[in-house]
Design a binder for these strands. Structure first.
Length: 419
DNA sequence: TCTGGGGTCCTAGGACCC
DNA sequence: TCTGGGGTCCTAGGACCC
């Protein structure tokens, strides 16, 4: 049996934790640059505000209904996510953190009835962190996702849905919307609508060859999983990333090469830091640059290029230098650039490196320097020590509705008035 | 005017090898 | 009429997830 713990409206719940006056009121959280809606409270969903909708399209609605707005405060959400995961780890033997607000766990070998266990897990997370969660328990991960959605929608389940008998599962799938199944996205959803396939049960009844032919092996996995046959592996070791990327849209178009170079240098440095944190090295670095695709009246350009290193590296100095060189290669004057990014690939664990005969980078020297830099930034705050190439002005985003750093800054702790 | 960011896996096609 | 077979590597694109 697999369990899934899914935080309810996670980013909104994080904001409400420190603003209890917002419980029961419509709340939304915005993407970087306050561009799109990326999280909604139930009340905001009921107003018809869609996931991913640009803010300007719902501005009037938001003002009319007094919807509370927040800029994304990922530091806060990351911290609270860590608290949720720590609580979960204390309750189950193995945990796979699937995303910032979701984790699977393996429930084999428990004596306690699983629905009682699920409710106990949900209540403990709620008590320890203040974040409301939904628990789904079923024979496969895909079915556990279905169960967690039921737990979220039906209050009488008290936050946990345990689904195991074949006839119960069949009954649930016969009404469960196919487009809400994990692995069925917008494209397939539309295609199934055209075929008048509406429920998960109707999908399960399709012939295996049809699914394989139209949806490939990934679709077939979903098909198996809905039948209670596990086809998606469980990964509790927290395997390291195969790619690390950092990209941003800019609040305004940027034309200046020097400015782009500083920004890209900062992105490369951010990637390098994360690379070292997971104790890995990368062999390739990509750099991309793109204009504003929404401005059809302006000339468009998208360019990407890469560099492969002879020896894998985690050196900020080398990655920053290379990213700037790649940027100079793809940059053309006269275009208004709206977004840029850096992507590290072919990531290998530190210590498994094949050295080259003619290595040119002073690896050991860089390693000691990076260690010192990381340590200083850990002690004195992020970005205290950085390469000159990044410039002194940090990359600015629009964050008009940012909440306090309640959990990561002494100056911004929540003040409780005692009267 | 305004439109996110960070990931995964799979497949097809082109260029190349012997 | 009729033009091999077995590979690798790379890129782009498509699908999905949160």
């Amino acid at each position: 049996m697999y369990g899934l713990c899914d935080c309810n409206n996670f980013f909104v719940s994080c904001e409400r934790l420190f603003r209890p006056d917002l419980v029961g009121r419509p709340v939304v959280v915005l993407s970087n640059n306050d561009g799109c809606i990326i999280a909604r409270s139930n009340e905001a969903k009921a107003l018809g505000i869609a996931m991913g909708q640009p803010l300007y399209q719902v501005k009037a609605l938001i003002e009319r209904h007094g919807v509370a707005l927040f800029s994304a405060n990922h530091t806060l959400y990351g911290d609270l996510s860590h608290r949720v995961m720590t609580t979960l780890r204390s309750l189950v033997p193995s945990l796979e953190i699937y995303s910032v607000d979701e984790a699977f766990f393996d429930l084999s070998g428990f004596d306690e009835p699983l629905d009682a266990l699920g409710r106990r897990i949900g209540a403990t997370v709620r008590r320890n962190t203040g974040i409301p969660v939904s628990i789904g328990i079923a024979p496969t991960k895909t079915l556990a996702k279905v169960a967690s959605k039921l737990a979220k929608h039906y209050p009488r389940l008290e936050g946990c849905c345990y689904m195991h008998r074949e006839e119960d599962i069949r009954k649930v799938l016969s009404t469960f919307p196919l487009r809400d199944v994990w692995g069925i996205g917008r494209r397939y959803g539309r295609r199934f609508d055209e075929m008048h396939l509406r429920t998960a049960a109707q999908f399960v009844d399709l012939p295996e060859a049809w699914v394989r032919g139209r949806m490939g092996v990934t679709g077939l996995r979903t098909w198996y999983e809905l039948q209670g046959r596990p086809a998606v592996g469980f990964d509790d070791l927290g395997s390291s990333r195969q790619q690390i990327s950092h990209s941003r849209s800019f609040p305004h178009e940027i034309y200046d090469r020097a400015e782009l170079e500083r920004i890209v240098a900062g992105f490369a440095a951010a990637c390098a830091e994360r690379l070292r944190r997971q104790r890995s090295l990368c062999r390739t670095i990509h750099c991309f640059l793109t204009t504003n695709r929404h401005r059809e009246d302006q000339p468009q350009r998208y360019e990407t290029t890469l560099c492969s290193f002879a020896e894998p590296t985690d050196s900020t100095l080398e990655l920053v230098k290379t990213a700037r060189r790649l940027l100079r290669e793809i940059y053309r004057p006269g275009f208004g650039y709206k977004k840029a990014g850096v992507l590290l690939g072919e990531i290998v664990p530190e210590g498994s490196v094949q050295r080259t005969l003619f290595g040119s980078v002073p690896t050991e020297k860089h390693a000691r320097l990076m260690q010192a830099m990381d340590e200083m930034n850990r002690l004195y705050g992020r970005g205290k020590v950085k390469t000159a190439a990044e410039g002194t002005e940090p990359f600015r985003m629009n964050r008009e509705y940012l909440s306090q750093r309640y959990t990561t800054s002494w100056d911004e702790l929540l003040v409780v008035k005692a009267k």
